[in-house]
């Protein structure tokens, strides 16, 4: 089967337990099997739909608005240091 769950889980930043992995793989394989019915349709020169509306050129003007939410969000963040958000070490430097 083309669906390599370990690789996709890594890409999705999910670390699945073995039993979880087994169940999800089975479910997704069955869903992918169902999705395969689309293969019946010839879609060679059909334009893909990304938007259902025919809107174009929705812009905003280059104006600055200052809305100060920093203190509010910092005060509720899971981990901060001063006015910064804090995260664990990004890489282990060698």
């Amino acid at each position: 089967m083309e669906f390599e769950i370990e690789k996709i889980a890594q890409l999705s930043r999910l670390s699945l337990k073995p039993e979880e992995l087994k169940k999800l793989r089975k479910d997704i394989e069955s869903i992918l099997g169902y999705i395969k019915t689309l293969g019946d349709l010839k879609t060679g020169d059909i334009e893909p739909t990304s938007h259902v509306l025919d809107l174009e050129n929705v812009f905003r003007k280059d104006d600055v608005t200052r809305i100060n939410i920093r203190d509010e969000v910092i005060s509720r963040a899971p981990c901060v240091e001063g006015p910064f958000f804090k995260v664990p070490k990004v890489v282990d430097k060698e």
Partner: peptide, 21 residues
């Protein structure tokens, strides 16, 4: 730090982008 921010550039859930012309 973090002064020039809003829900959009901080990527808060539900916020949406609008392009600067």
């Amino acid at each position: 730090p973090n002064q020039n921010t809003c829900p959009v550039c901080m990527g808060w859930p539900g916020s949406l982008p609008v392009l600067n012309e």
